[in-house]
Structure formats: C-alpha cells, structure tokens
Design a protein around this nucleic acid. Structure first.
Length: 492
RNA sequence: GCCCCCAUCGUCUAGUGGCCUAGGAUGCAAGAUUCUCAGUCUUGAGACCGGGGUUCAAAUCCCCGUGGGGGUACCA
C-alpha cells in the first residue's frame, strides 16, 4: 500500500517571484504528475520583516503564467490548511512545547552577544566542533522558570545528539551523512515566538503529508537538522532529493545582480511560458533521446531522478533566446497574433498595434516578423514602421554606398509611378520585375535600388522582404513613402 | 577556519568499464539560398581538471591533490 505521493514548493514572499522557484516547482510538479501525486504550494512567511502580500500575489501570478498549477495552496485551500505559515503559529508553538516536554528540546537564554563571541572564538581556534556550547542544556526546570519569570528572553533549541552521525540517501546524489557533533543545537522557536524555517518546515511537511522533498542544493546541509527533528517527533521523514543550483556565469548561486531572476521580467520580455519551462527543464535534466525541445508532458513522461544532474548549470540567456525563437516560429498564425496582441496590450506602450489591422493583415505581419524576433517584446520596436505614418529618413542610408544621389532619386521617382495603380502589388513577382527594370533603366544595381526602396519604405536597412512589406502597407502608403523619401533626398 | 556537495567543448549536456577517433544542442566561424536582416541548409574549430591506483581494458570504479559551489544565523 503506497502512500499517495505528495510534494511541495515553499517559497518565501519576499521580493519578486524568483526563477529558481519556478525551476524547483517545475520538477516537483513533473514528479507529482508522473506518479499521480499531489503538488502543494505553501507560503513561508515566517520572516515577518521581509514578507509582503504583494510578493505573495506575484508568486501566484507568475506560477499561473507558467501553468505550474498546484493542487493545494493558500488561495485554493486543501485538506491540510492553512497553507500560509503565518496562520499556523499556534501549531509550531505547540510542537515546540511537545519537544520540550519530551526532553528533546530546551529553553535557551543565551544572548546574541554571547553566541557571537562563541562563534568567533571557535572560528579563530580552527577546531571542528559545534558553535553553541550547550550552556542552557543543563539548566534545571526551576532555573529556567526563574529566568523566564525574571523577564529574560529565550529561544527553544533542539537537543542534537553529541555523537553518531545523521545521514540519508539523496535521490539525486546518493548517500550523504553528517557528524552530529558538528551540528549545533538548532533554534526552533525564535524569541519573538515565531518558528525558524527548520521547525515550520518539518512540522508542515509532516502534517501536510509530504512524501518527497525536492528542493535546491543549498538545503543539503540543513537536511540532517530536519532528519533529527523528524526523529525527535517520532515521525517518519520524507525522502529527499536536492536539485542543482542555478548559477551565474561565474558559477556562483544565481543572483539578480548578475542575471534577471524575476519571473516578471521574463514575462515582460516576451518569453513564452512553455519556452521558459523547456529551458528550465534543460538545466540539469536531459531527455533519453537527447532532444532539446520538449514540452511539459514529455518531461512528465520521462521524469526520473537518475536523469537529473548533480552539477549546477550556468543560466545562459543566449540559449533561452534561441529556444524562445524556436517556440515563436512554431506558433500557428492566429496563435502568434494572439500572443503578440496580448503582450503588447499588457506591456510596453500597452497598445495592441495589431488591432489597427485587418485580421488577415495581422497574421501576415506577424508571420513576417516571427523568424526575426527571439522575444515578443522585440516586435513593436522592429515592426514600428508598419504602424507609423511619419518616417524620418537618414540620407546616408537612403543612398547606398557607391551610389549617386541623383540616380537613386531618379529610380525612386520612377518607382513612385509604379504604385500609382492600387493593384500594383497584386502580384509580387510582377511588381518586383518592374522595379528591377527600373533599376536597369536608371543604371543602378538591383540590390542597391532595393536597399534604397527599403529605406524609403521602412526607414531602416533591415526588414522583411521588400515586396512582402510593401504589400502589407498597400500601394498608396508605399507610394507616399517613396515620395517622401524623394523629397527628403531633394532637401539634402 | 570547519562541514557538505560537485568537476566532459565558452555554455547546456549524452555517456553507468570495451560500441569513444568522446555524440547532440547552443554560441562562434565559413559557405549556400537571397533585395537587406532574420530564418533555413551544409561544413568547420571546440572538452573528459591533475596525479596515482584497480583492470586485459577507465571519461566511466577507488584514493590523493587542485578547482568551483553551498552551508556554517533568533534569513529562508
């Protein structure tokens, strides 16, 4: 009789929603789905100074944006709530008392100053032993009561065995063990009555029925503390798996100084959620067949701890950009329009430029730019010339290198005539042929002439194919722009 | 300082003792396509941290170095 698998992520609502949270959530969710288990979202807001409701809301928003849906959480409830630690204080206090009653924990009255001193002394000596000397361990009940009643501040500490070792088998790393003598008597309850991470975490995971704890590598050295706590309570601990830590290019733990870490940023830049998820999956995980592009369902299908790496992957935006471009190019025409429209409506100028166009033209324009952008946010800037009526020309661009201004002007004037007919662009090939004829007649190389036309029509030297672009604008606008360019040349 | 984790192309990785002359992807370079840019296609350069073992055989197992990272809080 197997217990239902239950996993969780437990972000702290401090600051922007972190890409590392999404990373860990992704693998937790994949594992849960793989085994028909449940995925819990728990908010760890025991740090009262830094936690904010705004930050909590952004966590929901970002995870939803990524479609990392949880089965239980503060916002949707569940059988083992509340799922916000600030609402569970009483629970932690009771459990700490239970530990004191059983003799597994004790009240400690040592001041931060004394602790500091102990730490410094030990560091200086270079010895390998625990920092806290356990002074208050031996306080009698009456002594402790006297101090308490005298108004002395206290914390609750766990009695960590002074011999033996605590170990476990990590699903991704194998056996890991620590000497108990090196582990400090952990603070369980702070002097403000709030639990530390360790206590809250263990109590919650147990009470919520968490069977597998999948978290980042930075928690490895906390694991023995947690194991000791489970044992102090007489509880069966969950199984642990420590995921590699995302890194900056200098291999240090990913940080916002050196990398964009806010999920909001990725959304604003126009990374597709499915592309970001795919990229995150690539960080430390690989498919049996080696493919790089795969969706969440494929990750679920092939998820296995043996396919997770132990080495911390460097977070490389270049590869994300490539991957995102691949996803953009794979989008169906109407879906691409939807994504671009939604993105423009939400970010940047908050104006959906595409809405000014006919449905058919929207699809055409989107399709023209899809292979040219890596992020949705690049579109409004790159396609701006489509939507504006006032282009400004740079003469040096209008006249390609080694071309004479006169010839260009003459060519443009001829081209202008071509677009006097409303259906001049009905047939791209015919229109292109006519322009080539003009180039030849005026004495310009076709390439140079097309470049001049491109600048005249778009104001820039890089654009989608000229005739496609002109067709989107229509004959009239095309002609007007060419005329404007001729004028601009005249003024030069 | 002490404890723990880790180590294959610049980067993400495949590799679980012989299929390895180390594979793929990205990035880079070159070429093709071409009205520019992008895309697409083709080609190229590019790695087993070092030293000892074990073995007929080691990128793969063991040990020692070295390097990197994380932890060492009344943060999480």
């Amino acid at each position: 009789m197997n217990k239902t698998i239950k996993v969780r992520i437990a972000p702290s609502p401090t600051g922007d929603p972190h890409v590392g949270t999404a990373y860990v959530a992704l693998f937790n969710l994949a594992f849960a789905r793989r085994h028909g288990g449940k995925f819990i979202l728990r908010i760890e807001d025991t740090d009262r100074a830094r936690s904010t409701v705004d930050s909590e809301k952004m966590i929901y928003d970002s995870l939803r944006w990524l479609n990392l849906q949880w089965d239980e959480g503060p916002d949707i409830g569940g059988p083992n709530g509340p799922y916000r630690q600030s609402e569970r204080s009483e629970l932690y206090r009771k459990h700490a008392e239970q530990l004191m009653a059983s003799g597994a924990a004790y009240r400690c009255f040592c001041t931060p100053a004394r602790l500091d001193e102990l730490r410094k002394k030990l560091q200086a000596s270079g010895a390998s032993q625990r920092h806290y000397d356990g002074l208050c361990r031996n306080l009698s009940e009456s002594e402790a009561r006297a101090k308490s009643e005298g108004g002395a501040a206290s914390v609750v500490r766990l009695k960590v065995p002074s011999e033996g070792e605590t170990g476990y088998t990590d699903f991704v790393r194998g056996d890991v063990s620590f000497q108990n003598t090196l582990l400090d008597d952990q603070v369980l309850l702070k002097s403000d009555g709030f639990p530390t991470y360790h206590l809250a975490n263990v109590v919650d995971d147990h009470l919520m029925g968490v069977t597998h704890v999948m978290r980042a590598e930075e928690w490895i050295s906390s694991t023995p503390k947690h194991l000791l706590l489970y044992s102090a309570f007489g509880w069966e601990p969950p199984r642990f798996a420590h995921l590699p830590l995302l890194r900056n290019s200098d291999k240090s733990k990913i940080s916002k100084r050196k990398n964009p870490t806010s999920l909001k940023w990725y959304e604003e830049q126009g990374y597709l959620p499915e592309a970001l998820l795919n990229f995150l999956a690539l960080m430390g995980f690989s498919m049996p067949d080696g493919v790089d592009i795969f969706g969440f369902d494929k990750l679920v299908e092939h998820f296995d701890f043996s396919r997770i790496n132990t080495t911390g992957p460097v977070f490389d935006l270049e590869k994300l950009n490539w991957l995102n471009g691949e996803y953009i190019r794979k989008l169906k025409a109407d879906e691409l329009v939807n994504r671009l429209s939604a993105h423009m409506g939400r970010f940047g100028g908050k104006v959906d430029l595409l809405s000014a166009l006919s449905p058919a033209t929207r699809a055409t324009v989107s399709g023209l730019f899809a292979p040219r952008i890596a992020r949705l946010a690049e579109f409004p800037e790159m396609a701006a010339f489509i939507f504006t009526d006032a282009l400004t020309y740079d003469h040096s661009l209008l006249v390609p290198k080694k071309c004479s201004r006169e010839l260009i002007a003459a060519g443009l004037r001829e081209a202008e005539k071509v677009f006097e007919s409303p259906d001049a662009l009905a047939d791209h090939k015919r229109a292109e042929d006519r322009l080539r004829e003009i180039a030849g007649a005026v004495g310009l190389k076709a390439g140079d002439f097309f470049m001049a036309l491109r600048v005249a029509v778009t104001g820039r030297t890089a654009s989608p194919p000229l005739l496609d672009t002109m067709a989107v604008l229509g004959a009239e606008k095309t002609r007007n722009r060419i005329a404007a360019a001729v004028q601009a040349l005249g003024r030069a």
